[in-house]
Amino acid sequence: MSTSETRTEDHEDHEDHEDHEHPSDQKYMQIALLLAVITAAEVATYFVHIGPALIPTLMVMMVVKFFIVAAWFMHLRFDSKMFTRFFVAGIVLAVSVYFIFLTVFEFWTKG
């Protein structure tokens, strides 16, 4: 391994799986609770009107939930960066390409 990039990866990946600190079941439950609370808040926006802040608020909550599931339940926090890279590549590519796509259709201005 001579590129520095691969070297660091090797370093972190060669530790055996079992050595990683897996979150405890309790931790998982806490995370699920957090997700449940955010979901409740999301649903609440349907009943309680919060005006123009609605869409930004919903988006933030969505991204937070997404992030939590990916980081904890999908173990990206603890796993190799390579996995994160592929997932992030897919997400970033999808978001940017389809953002342009919708822009060309004048989606944001005409709704």
Partner: peptide, 13 residues
């Protein structure tokens, strides 16, 4: 390509 390179075969070789 990522996983089965011979020893010493870095991406930039």
């Amino acid at each position: 390509i990522l996983n089965m390179r011979a020893p010493g075969m870095t991406l930039f070789k």
